[in-house]
Amino acid sequence: MHFDLTDQYRPRPSVVHHLDPRVKVVLALGFILAAGLTPIGAWSGFAALLILALAASLASRLGLTFALRRSYIALPFVLVALPLVFTIPGEIVYQTPLTGWTITAQGLDRFLSLILRSWIAIQAAILLVAVAPFPDVVWALGALRVPRLLVATIGFMYRYFFVLADETARMLRARTARSAEAQGRRKPSLLWQGGVAGAMVGSLFLRALERSERVHAAMLARGYNGQMPSLAHREMRRMDWLVLLAALLLLVGRLAWARLS
C-alpha cells in the first residue's frame, strides 16, 4: 500500500517546472502513448524514448536517475505477462529441463517490449507529479475539458485524503494497542478479525459522511449553490507552445521512423 503521505512534488527552478500545467499533462500522456505505440522489437525506438525521459529528468533539475529510482513500482505486475515468453510460438530459444516449456525469441521480444513500454510510461508519470504540484494537475484536467464537477470531486478527494488517512492511522494504532497476546491464548478467528476491520471501515465511513455534511455547510456559508465557480485563467506563453510543439514533433517523428523502418 503506498501510504507515502509526502507529496510527490519537488519544486526546482527549472524550465520544465515553469511550463504551463496543461503542457505537462499533455506531454506526459503523449509520451506514454508513444511508448505504447512503439512496435514490438523496435529497440532503438525504446532507447530513444528512454533517453528522452532521462533528458526530461535532467532538464527538470531532478537528476538523471530520479524517475529511474522510483520506477520499481511497476515491477510486480510484470509477472502477469511472464507467461508470454512461453506461449507465443516461434523460434525456440530455450527449453526448461523438467517441464519442457519452450521459451521463444518472439515471446521474449514481446515480453521485453512490454516491460520497456511500462517502464518508460511510469517514468513519465513520476516526472509529471514531480514537476507539477497536484492542485495544478487538477486544474489542468479541468482546463483540458474534464467535467468540472469531476475535477472538483478529485480536488476534494485529494484535500481530504490526508485528514481521513490520519483518522484511519489513529484507529489502526488504537487497534494495535489493544491487540495484546495473552500467554497461551489462541489468536482470534479470521472471521472475527474481518468483522473488526469491517466495523472500523463502517465507522470511518460514517465519520466521513458526517464530515462531508459539515464541509457542505461550510461551502453553503460561503455562498455555494451547486455550481462550481469558473476556473482561474492561465495564458499559454510562447515558451509553452514551443516546448509542446517541439516535443510532439519529436515523439511523432520517432514513432513514424520506428514504424516504417
Binding site: 487538477v138 481530504y160 459539515r214 464541509v215 461550510a218
Partner: peptide, 9 residues
C-alpha cells in the same frame, strides 16, 4: 473544525 472549512487544495 477548520478542516471542514478549508476544503480547497
Amino acid at each position: 473544525d477548520p478542516d471542514d472549512q478549508l476544503f480547497s487544495p
